[in-house]
Computed example of a mutant assay.
Amino acid sequence: MRAAAQAFPSISARRAAGAWRRPRHVGRYAADAANTLFSPAYDIVDVGASFDLDRWLRVPARAYLNVDNQFDPVHVSTFKSLSPVGTGAPRFVRVGVQLGF
């Protein structure tokens, strides 16, 4: 039984619970072969938090909340001279519970 417990570490051992934020900067880039058309630069911030539920449940468990694109700026994700401009993903919220067996 001990070998199985070591082979499958608890959720807590794989990633510590807590809060995090991930800012990303995408600089401007050339959108055509002649380098005459450039996309605008943009910044995105993703945040998240998780909380271990192990002490209340009989299995390893974690509740989490993730927010992608927290400030929801409209940004260009695809910008090429011969194709339409594509906008980036809007704010996206994920809430859930992760269970380990």
Rank of each mutant, 00 (worst) to 15 (best):
A3F: 06
A3K: 11
A4E: 06
A5M: 07
Q6H: 11
Q6P: 02
A7S: 07
P9D: 05
S12H: 06
S12I: 05
R14M: 04
R14S: 07
R15Q: 15
A17K: 01
A17P: 00
A17D: 01
G18Y: 10
G18W: 09
A19S: 05
A19W: 14
R22S: 13
R24N: 09
H25Y: 06
H25N: 08
G27L: 07
A33R: 12
A34K: 06
N35Q: 07
L37M: 13
F38W: 12
S39C: 05
S39K: 07
P40N: 08
P40G: 05
A41L: 04
I44T: 07
A49W: 12
S50G: 04
S50C: 11
F51A: 14
R55M: 09
R55S: 15
W56T: 11
L57Q: 06
L57N: 09
R58Q: 11
V59P: 00
A61H: 01
R62Q: 05
A63E: 15
Y64M: 11
Y64K: 03
L65Y: 03
L65D: 00
F71S: 15
F71V: 09
P73F: 03
H75D: 00
H75N: 02
V76K: 00
S77G: 10
T78G: 10
F79A: 01
K80F: 08
S83R: 06
V85P: 02
V85I: 15
G86E: 12
G88V: 13
R91G: 08
R91A: 14
F92N: 14
F92I: 14
R94Y: 04
Q98A: 04
L99I: 06
G100P: 01
F101E: 14
F101L: 15
F101W: 06
